[in-house]
Simulated scan of single mutants.
Amino acid sequence: MRRMLKQSALVRDNNFKGGLKEYAKEMGKIGKFATQLKIAGYVSIATDIVGSSIKVYEAAPEDKARTTVVETAKVGAGIGFGIYASYLIVGLATGGTGLIVIGIVAAGAAIAAKGTSEIAGYGAGYIYDKVESINE
């Protein structure tokens, strides 16, 4: 196993000149960072759900159905995009990229997930309005 790891492109790369010990340290850092990202993800999901629930609760009675559809689409798209982004981040982490690159990708993924959820909410609201106008 050691011989195979020493022949690995990751260990021979300039980032891991210290060999197996430095490689193990770097993987430990990435593991800690992944744990922090996991906790931040749970907090983000909870915040989105609570925020959407408040918006639905405070909506006018005639707008409750539309607000429910829009907010549900936003939360669903945000979670879906977050899953996709987490696969991307894990793929980068296991590929041996640096911790800074993974952090940049994680931050970019969070911003992209927010944008995707807003677009999904806008689309859901547009479709809801069209269906509502047909039913009238």
Results as ranks from 00 to 15, higher is better:
residue 126 Y to M: 06
residue 21 K to I: 10
residue 122 Y to M: 09
residue 111 I to Q: 01
residue 82 G to C: 03
residue 34 A to D: 04
residue 22 E to D: 11
residue 78 G to R: 03
residue 54 I to Y: 13
residue 57 Y to I: 03
residue 70 V to Q: 11
residue 29 K to W: 11
residue 21 K to R: 13
residue 115 G to I: 01
residue 134 I to G: 10
residue 64 K to H: 14
residue 127 I to N: 08
residue 38 K to G: 15
residue 25 K to D: 12
residue 20 L to K: 09
residue 34 A to M: 14
residue 69 V to G: 06
residue 61 P to V: 13
residue 87 Y to I: 02
residue 64 K to Q: 15
residue 50 V to R: 02
residue 100 I to Q: 10
residue 98 G to K: 10
residue 54 I to C: 05
residue 124 A to I: 00
residue 106 A to S: 15
residue 111 I to H: 00
residue 43 V to Y: 11
residue 130 K to Q: 08
residue 61 P to F: 09
residue 48 D to M: 14
residue 85 A to C: 02
residue 45 I to R: 02
residue 40 A to S: 15
residue 53 S to V: 08
residue 113 A to S: 15
residue 65 A to S: 15
residue 89 I to S: 05
residue 19 G to H: 08
residue 27 M to Q: 14
residue 33 F to K: 08
residue 94 T to Y: 11
residue 46 A to V: 05
residue 91 G to Q: 01
residue 42 Y to W: 13
residue 127 I to R: 10
residue 23 Y to A: 11
residue 35 T to I: 04
residue 71 E to K: 08
residue 108 G to R: 04
residue 60 A to S: 10
residue 34 A to P: 00
residue 82 G to N: 05
residue 39 I to C: 05
residue 79 I to V: 15
residue 66 R to T: 05
residue 12 R to Q: 11
residue 63 D to W: 10
residue 111 I to A: 12
residue 111 I to W: 05
residue 104 I to Q: 10
residue 49 I to W: 01
residue 128 Y to C: 03
residue 30 I to Q: 14
residue 15 N to I: 01
residue 74 K to D: 01
residue 100 I to H: 09
residue 3 R to Q: 06
residue 9 A to D: 01
residue 89 I to D: 01
residue 128 Y to Q: 02
residue 96 G to W: 08
residue 19 G to Q: 14
residue 51 G to Q: 00
residue 91 G to M: 02
residue 44 S to D: 13
residue 76 G to N: 03
residue 35 T to S: 08
residue 103 G to W: 09
residue 87 Y to K: 13
residue 42 Y to C: 14
residue 111 I to N: 00
residue 130 K to E: 04
residue 123 G to C: 10
residue 57 Y to M: 08
residue 60 A to F: 02
residue 121 G to Q: 00
residue 14 N to W: 14
residue 91 G to L: 01
residue 133 S to K: 11
residue 129 D to C: 03
residue 98 G to T: 10
residue 115 G to V: 02
residue 48 D to T: 06
residue 126 Y to A: 12
residue 78 G to A: 07
residue 15 N to A: 14
residue 108 G to E: 01
residue 97 T to I: 07
residue 30 I to E: 12
residue 75 V to D: 04
residue 54 I to T: 07
residue 97 T to H: 12
residue 107 A to S: 14
residue 44 S to Q: 12
residue 96 G to T: 07
residue 84 Y to P: 07
residue 117 S to W: 00
residue 89 I to L: 12
residue 34 A to F: 05
residue 6 K to Y: 05
